[in-house]
């Protein structure tokens, strides 16, 4: 029989499902081809402990810009740790929403690091970080307008063409909303990702922070996001000032974010999950204990078979 395009697509689809027989019924369990399991953001404070202890976690996320250097100790550790763990790359200065030209020199260095590390994927934020060559080193929100959608979509497509693969775009936390915004943040994220054909790094904490700051229901955000686009979760802590919340990443993940994580799992199914801690960094053991909370919530929320990391299944 000649294999048509449709047959090939169907075969790929079935390959992504695990079929098990339960009595006379066939139970088809949706397996995420992209589920890496539970990971942490790799931080300099933990380099030594990671290599010494080889902690029982599934993957690390690394901040791309931290390793866009020629050499030295951090990069040496990075490559040593890469030998033991899958990695994903997370950037903070692509500035995909800026109206400056795309920085091709930056993209070249990003691609070099990407080729060195061979990550599972790479990501950056749905934001802008500077203008006229000045970098504010902040993740600044976009107005949610058609002009902004068109602008960002075109640039994501160019980045994906240059990198030769799809990227993940992360929702940022924000403290302002622009008067000209015509749609909600989640509608904006949805439109951008559908039109640019990119994936989503869904930051659960950022949604909680922005929901508090802008008085929206975070569950609506979750329900308005296409599960097929979501490849990764960030979990983090923040600082609550009562009237508003600031995304500081210097505290443990608080209860409301865990609750939102549970809601996100229900809607999205198994998604590679990690804790992102950038300041006031605790010991590796403490972070591992916090990651166990994520594992427990996922185990309570999803079917056990869904939580087998992709690469472990292949072993």
């Amino acid at each position: 029989m000649e294999i048509t395009q449709n047959h090939w697509v169907a075969a790929k689809f079935l390959h992504n499902k695990r079929v098990t027989e339960t009595g006379s019924q066939i139970k088809v369990i949706a397996m995420s081809q992209h589920f890496l399991g539970f990971g942490l953001g790799l931080r300099i404070d933990h380099f030594h402990d990671v290599l010494e202890q080889k902690p029982d976690l599934d993957w690390f996320e690394v901040i791309s810009e931290n390793f866009m250097v020629d050499g030295g100790k951090p990069k040496h550790y990075l490559h040593s740790i890469r030998e033991h763990y899958p990695m994903v790359m997370h950037g903070v200065s692509l500035s995909i929403g800026s109206t400056d030209e795309l920085d091709m020199a930056y993209l070249k260095r990003l691609k070099q690091l990407h080729d060195e590390l061979q990550p599972e994927w790479f990501s950056d934020h749905l934001c802008w970080t500077g203008l006229n060559g000045i970098n504010a080193h902040d993740l600044l929100p976009m107005p949610y307008t058609e002009e902004a959608i068109n602008h960002v979509v075109e640039r994501i497509q160019r980045v994906q063409d240059y990198m030769g693969r799809q990227m993940l775009i992360e929702n940022v936390s924000s403290y302002i909303s622009y008067a000209e915004s015509q749609i909600s943040e989640w509608e904006f994220l949805h439109e951008v990702c559908e039109r640019a054909d990119c994936h989503i790094l869904f930051d659960v904490n950022n949604i909680y922070v922005s929901a508090r700051n802008h008085d929206f229901d975070p569950v609506e955000y979750i329900k308005g996001t296409n599960p097929a686009r979501v490849r990764q979760f960030h979990l983090a802590g923040h600082t609550d000032y009562g009237d508003y919340v600031i995304d500081t990443h210097d505290h443990d993940v608080p209860d409301p974010v865990w609750q939102l994580y549970r809601q996100a799992l229900l809607h999205f199914g198994p998604v590679s999950t990690m804790i992102e801690r950038d300041d006031n960094i605790p010991s590796l053991n403490d972070l591992m204990a916090e990651l166990d909370i994520a594992r427990r919530i996922a185990a309570e929320t999803l079917d056990g078979d869904q939580l087998v990391p992709r690469y472990k299944e292949a072993v």
Partner: peptide, 19 residues
Amino acid sequence: DGHIRDHGAISADTRLNIY
């Protein structure tokens, strides 16, 4: 500041000052 929404308990000024 004329293009930032002023809603809830925090003013546009407070919001901008965070940045």
